[in-house]
Nucleic acid binder design. Structure first.
Lengths: 192, 192
DNA sequence: TATTCCTTTCAGAGATTATTGAAAGAAACA
DNA sequence: TGTTTCTTTCAATAATCTCTGAAAGGAATA
């Protein structure tokens, strides 16, 4: 139901800036899919990332052409993840949102969340699975004996790997952008 | 259509080893979901990871209770990813599969693939998006001028971050498990 | 060559996830 | 207090992704 009277907002052609942003948003959304994050959530995140000023729910609805419910749900998820923040503009009842634009902070947030949700459960499971076969270890004459050994070893390796990886990423995050060059240099030396 | 005659294989109760493996497989599958990998594919991968001997399509079908088509498709995907290999046993027409069990190799493979599929496209898009607004830069009197500046800066930061991150991960992968301790030590010093 | 055994493919069915829109809820305002 | 404005929730619907099973395709064997 578009108002066509002369005084109404006539949708102007998208500027190159708008086109560019739209393209980035679209791609960021696609990538979200690969990362187990729903496309719309990632698009909203991108929209906020490229916005120089706070954005309200209606802006999100209009720009991405999605329903109020959808916008509301995904904005909440982004807040829960800690990737965006709610803010209130004086003299305006609406809620606005802004993205934390420091990419390293962003990364830290994502790493912390994903680690908690994805790495920790698998580590717990590995420990539990090892314990299960530890109990049967005593009966050494078991036909499974060798199998058990190999199995335990593989679980161990995976466990160690996940631990190490976690440590490295944690440190990386703490170091932030400044140390990256130094670190890269050090690592390169190590490779040689 | 289970044969119930005395000579048929009567399904015995699962041993603790089998139970333990089943649990690991289940959890690995769940995690796959978070990583944009379908559950079954991740489960097959886990099944092969904890198997001491090669496994054929029928084994996969039986253990995970899935159809031939499903097994075939997901096994192929895993081969495409480079996470498992096809092998042929002498005197047997069937194809068997084995998992590359070195966790660092596994990690390297995954990193390489995900980088190609997920990081590179977004980097390309960022470059393209920057180029789009570079063109309009000359008309400095544009109302968008400031907006363009901020936008370009954010894209730049993201670009730099993705580059740096890629470099670090590459190096990590090359270093492998041995250097992890040293590296961790060095990083810890840097933090202080 | 025909037969057997195994693998792949893919249309349709099924399951899961995402989205809508309207109703209920909440908070500021008058 | 009632009214207005904005937000959240959720059942129904739509879109997407996954799985099945049967048919077609291939390769080794007789």
């Amino acid at each position: 139901m578009v108002d066509k009277t002369p005084t109404a907002d006539i949708p102007s052609l998208p500027t190159p800036l708008e086109q560019s942003k739209a393209q980035f948003i679209r791609r960021w959304g696609e990538m979200g899919g690969y990362w187990g994050i729903n496309r719309t959530m990632a698009e909203i995140h991108a929209l906020l990332f490229v916005s120089t000023e706070p954005i309200c729910t209606d802006d999100v609805m209009a720009k991405l052409m999605i329903s109020r419910g959808n916008a509301s749900m995904n904005l909440r998820s982004l807040v829960d993840w800690g990737l965006i923040e709610r803010i209130h503009l004086r003299g305006d009842r609406k809620e606005y949102f802004v993205c934390r634009t420091d990419v390293w902070e962003m990364f830290e947030t994502i790493v912390r969340q994903r680690r908690r949700r994805e790495v920790e459960p698998i580590v717990e499971t590995i420990e539990h699975c090892k314990a299960m076969v530890d109990d049967i270890q005593p009966k050494a004459a078991d036909a499974d004996a060798e199998d058990v050994q190999v199995y335990k070893q593989r679980l161990d390796e995976m466990h160690k790997f996940l631990d190490s990886f976690g440590t490295i990423v944690d440190l990386m995050v703490k170091l932030g952008p400044g140390s990256l060059q130094r670190l890269s240099g050090m690592m390169t030396k190590l490779v040689k």
